[in-house]
Design a binder for these strands. Structure first.
Ligand SMILES: NC(=O)c1ccc[n+]([C@@H]2O[C@H](COP(=O)([O-])OP(=O)(O)OC[C@H]3O[C@@H](n4cnc5c(N)ncnc54)[C@H](O)[C@@H]3O)[C@@H](O)[C@H]2O)c1
Ligand SMILES: NC(=O)c1ccc[n+]([C@@H]2O[C@H](COP(=O)([O-])OP(=O)(O)OC[C@H]3O[C@@H](n4cnc5c(N)ncnc54)[C@H](O)[C@@H]3O)[C@@H](O)[C@H]2O)c1
Lengths: 217, 217
DNA sequence: AATCAATAAAGAAATTTTTCTTTAATAAAA
DNA sequence: TTTTATTAAAGAAAAATTTCTTTATTGATT
């Protein structure tokens, strides 16, 4: 089959996954006043191979000094820029239930470049409330507000069975990326970015390791 | 270097990650009364290659029928057994804040074999409360209760800076696995299973894809 | 009854990701 | 000043994972 659009040398996804942890670690060191950090130290913190760290950082403009390591400040600055954490992107959250509320309370999202501008629900008892200063609107108001604010991401935290309905609405509203926290997979046009965050996968991995251990005994 | 303990042909982690979604899909089909499902259908739902599905399922005892597919009931039964979702494991949650409360409210965990027996905190205003029928105790009571109940997993949902302290306590209490929701990496003895669930990795991946798209334009 | 098309399964090939090896630089120690 | 040890970086090798290819099976269609 002919490949029309070739991916330009992309950064490996596992690398992208690790980078926020490097960043968080470096931020901690910065607060403690440490000026340099070696790949060995980072690797030790992350429980991975030091060359992995070196390779990961080589995708950025960060360069290390032999026998010294990387400048902590550079890691913080370059990595947050690189990961898109230093510009604020706007998002809408749909489903202001328990998980939705937790996300609305999480300052980490804000710190890493995501501003939840508004939340939406269908439950009359939540509509009109403010959760951590973010107002909860009725879902029908989404369209108007999406036009007003420059929102590129939609966060889905409704029950799984309603995920597709919400996704369809988001696509209609012109949202570019969807962060889906339900275990349901959604169908959207090809150009929409979908990130599924399924906590139960993590549970499966833990159980697998636990039971493997039992098997080995 | 000599390798003393060789991993017995383990199931690939990506496979384990996908399986809960296969299971959830099959459960939905079962509710709708569908008897068989093909790898093509599953792959279409998951947005992956059909042979990937076939290969993944081949790690279990599930066998498909040519021209027909897999029995939905078999997928549900075998997969939930295989993933360790059909036996209940007990857990303690430490940090009954916004994320902790969300997890306590989540019936999905229960459905997938995890029972949170008790929650712990240091904040006097949360201690004594019940969140979704789970009582919140002072952290000092953890030791006594851990002995009483057969708890193998600890869930950490405290602020990142307290993650290590809590992890140390959990290890001292004899917990076998730790599910860490903070962005901080914790240090524990080798035989303790640690699963880090860092939401911000997902954010980084979305931003990366969004910006890659912008670059290609 | 013969043909066709969809499928699982097994294995090969390709791709991606991680780990290992080598080299060069340089701070610290002797 | 010389030696030693630590480190980044680049590239090679290995390992893991995904995708492709082939084969056999069988329900549906002609
Ligand atoms: N709670 C958790 O910790 C947790 C963990 C993992 C995954 N999840 C997943 O996240 C999703 C939400 O879970 P939750 O525990 O927050 O559920 P929840 O019931 O507490 O919240 C869901 C919210 O969505 C609203 N809603 C329902 N349909 C809607 C619609 N069409 N439009 C707008 N709002 C709508 C409800 O009114 C409710 O407020 C579920 O799919 C769940 O599996 C939750
Ligand atoms: N809220 C979210 O949606 C979200 C998302 C991703 C990651 N996280 C991470 O989860 C962690 C918790 O976040 P949160 O938003 O729930 O914070 P939170 O402040 O709402 O809750 C933290 C809770 O931990 C308790 N606590 C603090 N130190 C403790 C200790 N030593 N022992 C026992 N309890 C202690 C506090 O009293 C509080 O109730 C953070 O690391 C955060 O980065 C949260």
């Amino acid at each position: 089959m002919v490949q029309y659009s070739k991916k330009i040398q992309a950064v490996p996804e596992p690398t992208i996954r690790r980078m926020p942890s490097y960043l968080a670690f470096a931020e901690g060191l910065l607060r403690k006043g440490q000026q340099f950090v070696s790949s060995t130290q980072i690797a030790n913190y992350m429980n991975i191979d030091p060359t992995q760290v070196t390779k990961d950082l080589s995708y950025t403009t960060i360069v290390g000094k032999t026998r010294v390591g990387y400048e902590v400040k550079a890691i913080v600055d370059v990595l947050s820029e690189f990961l898109g954490f230093s510009v604020m992107d706007n998002a809408f959250l749909v489903g202001a239930g328990s998980l939705g509320s937790a996300l609305l309370h999480d300052s980490g999202l804000n710190h890493f470049g995501l501003k939840i501008e508004a939340a939406f629900d269908i439950n009359p008892s939540t509509i009109g409330r403010k959760i951590n200063d973010v107002e909860v609107f009725h879902i029908d108001q989404f369209r108007d507000l999406a036009q007003e604010l420059n929102v590129i991401m939609g966060i889905i935290t409704v029950p799984a069975e309603n995920a597709q309905t919400v996704a369809d609405l988001m696509v209609a509203w012109g949202i570019k990326a969807i962060w889906n926290f339900t275990p349901a997979r959604i169908k959207v046009p090809e150009d929409i970015i979908v990130q599924n965050t399924t906590l139960y996968s993590n549970l499966a991995i833990i159980f697998n390791k636990l039971h493997q251990e039992r098997r080995e005994e």
